[in-house]
Design a protein around this nucleic acid. Structure first.
Lengths: 110, 110
DNA sequence: ATTATTTATCGTAATATTGCAATATAAAAA
DNA sequence: TTTTTATATTGCAATATTACGATAAATAAT
């Protein structure tokens, strides 16, 4: 086969996986970090920052956007992309809760 | 093409992406959550918990292990898998720092 | 109106991932 | 020793991802 069996997992599991997957590529991590580093959102120069061709960057941006990690607004003939706080908070909360459960566990046998 | 250009990104970006990628599949999220939910680490029944065949589960476990998200120890003819706190903390810290930067930013134009 | 700039999309090749049946391996139980 | 039990590995088909050249679309500048 080759297709993920999404329907067998809970909505929350799928949601976490989708967010994680979007950040599962160094280029997309780099894009997020670049967006954080610029104060103004003249974000077209992401292409110049990354060692990838423009269509590739555009594709990565599309994935980040469809996963909800970034949001974009048209501004003239350019586009302003920003990191979406909500998605980051979801991830932060999720891993915080996982860490909390781990800390509570006495018997970490390994 | 088709191969990720890892060498063009920083070690940290690659590290975050590798951890995120490992959790970028609902089955692997489900495995982590199952490991958190059991107190004893008789973890062989992960296969019974998941709607996937044994070789598929074994492969997902391998990926989680090689990414450092879980660790395993042989116990007789079974294996005890546990979530590795270090990896979760790395993710938690990373997203916390991203969230902190976002909060500090005044001009979130989008 | 024409040209430049910016971003997206299409098409396609290379590679990776997902999933499983079949089989191997290795320790436990009989 | 033989058989079970638990896990890993192999091989393969289906699908997804990554990357980019070529091209489209849409606004800005001339």
């Amino acid at each position: 086969m080759g297709a993920t069996k999404t329907e067998h997992f809970t909505d929350k599991q799928n949601a976490v996986a989708a967010l994680a997957k979007a950040l599962g590529h160094p280029a997309r991590v780099a894009i997020v970090e670049y967006l954080l580093s610029v104060d103004s959102c003249i974000c077209g120069d992401i292409v110049n920052e990354l060692p990838l061709a423009q269509p590739t960057v555009s594709q990565h941006l599309k994935e980040l956007k469809s996963a909800g990690i970034i949001k974009g607004e048209i501004e003239g003939n350019a586009i302003c992309y920003c990191v979406d706080e909500t998605a980051i908070e979801k991830l932060q909360d999720y891993f915080a809760s996982v860490a909390a459960i781990l800390h509570k566990k006495k018997s970490n046998c390994c």
